[in-house]
Nucleic acid binder design. Structure first.
Lengths: 259, 259
DNA sequence: ACAATAGCAG
DNA sequence: CTGCTATTGT
């Protein structure tokens, strides 16, 4: 059987909030080492990868590998029934076609369980792009979220330019033109820092719509990391403290002048 | 003449919020002892009963019994014009066909009055069902509201099963199946307690839509009481501290297998 | 009428 | 973390 118990159940609620707008359905791969999900979004533009380590759970048991295909909007509706301070346990029998979510209030006086049908989804296991990037930027996740939200008022594209001095975001459209520059932090205040690890300067343009989907993961981590190389998908990564991480991949827009 | 003054005017606003979605029009019966309203909802499915004791008002005068038929959505719109900390006074002349609402700000610097036409409504005075129940549960009203809201995601019916150990709510539908169990509270924290007074176990099923109408009374009281007997309407009761109470009656759904 | 959201207070 | 308010969209 499979069983995973998470005392800080709000983390799982947050994970679902971070992916449910991108993925209608997806499969959770459960193994001894933990739980993984990888899928292209509904429009097959971006790729989402979630990794939850077995050690991150307060109890974890997975006798046999198992793939649980779920309707994520149903799963999200179920998790909305959990309070933020509830303890969440996911369970499945080895060959069952259902999964059970159990929520326990901290004082144990309220216990609820929700059973949901699993589904067979096409397996689309996807090779994750290369691991060396010309530029890796770490910055406060709330800062990144704010920038994406602000710039998406100006246009459908957000341009990100990174040099060793700092990172610049820009967008332009009917309203006007917007530029936001962040300098690499000198003071190393943890969590507040902007840190740039640069092999070579990079300038790329991305869909603001997808960036705005990615920033829904903001509550999961105070920091976000952006990895970029020319003509290669951007990686937006949030580390979930003690539990794992969630990554989003998005190919850059091709500069129209290239054609 | 009739006059009723309520320093805590927000209570009256809350009462209207608690009934206006169920009742388009209704009659307020004013007597020396207080104000009463009883009516079937618009679809003649549930019954609403409001009781406001004369002693609950800060000033109360009712020279002759009088029945004030009102359009409750108009009354609600008028009460929305009162601030939450306003003092509210209702007034009517003995044979008038209008009622006046007066709102005074706490510092007396703003005084408003609103006059509304009364209407003649068919008198449908309704016998309230029996008073002995197989099972009476008191629980935090916010908990009950949360459960009704959560379970209504799963189906149009909510099943309530009560034993002396606790109370269980369930629902099922397309998304899956949901069960919520509350144990009778051991610690007698006031307002937080789940208290079950049980003659015999009861299991009944109700329309989630109507339960979701009833929980609009939640702001009126920290506690709600559910009274149930087999094949008899459920009573959902909120006590309005120092002022009276509001009760909702709803017949259980008939088990289809009975037919 | 309801749900989702954001912002703020306790 | 909860409550309340306000606001929005479906």
């Amino acid at each position: 059987m499979f069983e995973a118990r998470l005392v800080k159940g709000s983390l799982l609620k947050n994970v679902l909030d971070a992916i449910k707008d991108l993925l209608k359905q997806a499969s959770w791969d459960c193994a001894d080492s933990g739980i993984q999900l990888q899928a292209m979004d509904n429009s097959h533009v971006s790729l989402v990868s979630v990794n939850l380590k077995a050690e991150g759970f307060d109890k974890y048991r997975c006798d046999r590998n198992l793939i649980m295909g779920m309707d994520l909007s149903s799963m999200s509706k179920i998790l909305k029934c959990a309070a933020n301070d509830d303890i969440i346990t996911m369970k499945a029998q080895d060959n069952a076609d259902t999964v059970t979510f159990m929520f326990e209030s901290p004082n144990q006086e309220k216990v609820s369980d929700y059973e949901m049908k699993l589904m067979n989804l096409d397996q689309e296991h996807l090779g994750i792009p290369e691991t060396e990037y010309a530029c890796v930027v770490k910055m406060p996740s709330s800062e990144f979220a704010r920038i994406c939200r602000d710039l998406s008022n100006f246009g459908e594209s957000i341009c990100i330019a990174c040099t060793k001095e700092g990172i610049k975001f820009c967008a332009s459209g009917d309203i006007g033109t917007a530029n936001i520059k962040l300098a690499q932090t000198s003071s190393v205040e943890k969590g507040e820092a902007v840190i740039i690890d640069l092999q070579e300067p990079v300038t790329l343009t991305f869909s603001s719509h997808y960036l705005n989907m990615f920033i829904k993961a903001t509550p999961l981590s105070p920091q976000v990391s952006l990895s970029m190389s020319p003509e290669v998908p951007l990686v937006v990564e949030y580390n979930i403290p003690d539990l794992g991480q969630i990554q989003y991949f998005l190919a850059p827009k091709i500069d129209e002048s290239d054609s």
